[in-house]
């Protein structure tokens, strides 16, 4: 509850500060002061081009801190409360510098454009490496460019971009191997069922079970063999890979660290 309050206060503060400057909040809000004046102009121009081309809101927000709030929740709030006036949908790229986290949130409409993890990664895999280098302007320009591409794809095909599925060679080969294994095991059992002629291996049936008496036992230690198998290293996820912890019915997108 306390977290929610903090978020609401922060969002309100953002609203107020924006409202004093313009009637509608500008699409670039650099609260963390990461951009120079000329960079700001460039990014803003590029965002605006995309917004006008598709009648959407394509926003960037940088924050020095959002307290303990989760970037995903905060970004969703921005979509709900601030950047909610795009006729064809809204998308925001949030960067939180003290947590070194980013998050891309979309509303329901753009969820169909930026589809799932692959859609979000299409943007983040290109943009986040710039954040790592400290080139924020580069990151936001790339973000705008990628949103442009996704929107263009959506308008052309009537559905969001999705990576082409590779031909499932592994599944085909695996299925064939399983097929051969099962068929040969089945053949063995079928053939075995046709004959019950088989020699006995032991005389267990004729052993007087009560007669066994262990007279002597002697165990000697011989030697020890030690083998060491290195554990597989925990794979580092690539720059811009996405976790969708905060996506819900009304929001799309995802985020991660940089």
């Amino acid at each position: 509850m306390k977290k929610l309050l903090i978020i609401l206060t922060l969002v309100a503060a953002l609203l107020l500060s924006a409202a004093t400057a313009l009637a509608a909040t500008p699409s670039l809000v650099d609260k963390a002061h990461l951009l120079t004046a000329s960079e700001r102009a460039q990014v803003q121009a590029q965002l605006q081009t995309v917004e006008q081309k598709y009648s959407i809101r394509c926003a960037v927000v940088t924050m020095g801190s959002i307290g303990n709030a989760k970037p995903g929740i905060y970004a969703n709030q921005l979509i709900d409360k601030v950047f909610n006036d795009g006729p064809n949908g809204n998308i925001v790229f949030l960067q939180v510098t003290d947590q070194r986290q980013w998050y891309i949130s979309t509303d329901r409409k753009l969820k169909d454009v930026v589809v799932g993890i692959p859609g979000t990664e299409y943007i983040s895999k290109a943009a986040v490496p710039y954040l790592k280098k400290g080139d924020e302007a580069g990151a936001y320009k790339t973000y705008a460019k990628r949103v442009d591409e996704l929107m263009a794809y959506y308008q052309k095909h009537g559905k969001g971009w999705q990576p082409e599925k590779e031909f499932p060679w592994l599944a085909v080969v695996g299925a064939l191997v399983a097929g051969v294994a099962v068929a040969s095991a089945y053949k063995k059992s079928l053939i075995a069922a046709m004959s019950n002629v088989c020699r006995e291996v032991s005389a267990d049936a004729y052993l007087d079970q009560g007669s066994f008496n262990l007279e002597n036992e002697h165990d000697t230690y011989l030697y020890t063999k030690v083998t060491s198998t290195p554990k597989p290293k925990q794979g580092h996820r690539g720059a811009g890979s996405v976790s969708t912890s905060s996506s819900d019915g009304g929001h799309g997108g995802g985020g991660g660290g940089y």
Partner: peptide, 23 residues
């Protein structure tokens, strides 16, 4: 960072008597 398997080997001698009937 690794899984160490240490296997100790032993030689076990056993002696016992038993009775079989009409094999």
């Amino acid at each position: 960072d690794a899984i160490m398997t240490s296997t100790s080997f032993y030689n076990c001698q056993r002696q016992g008597c038993m009775k079989f009937e009409r094999i």
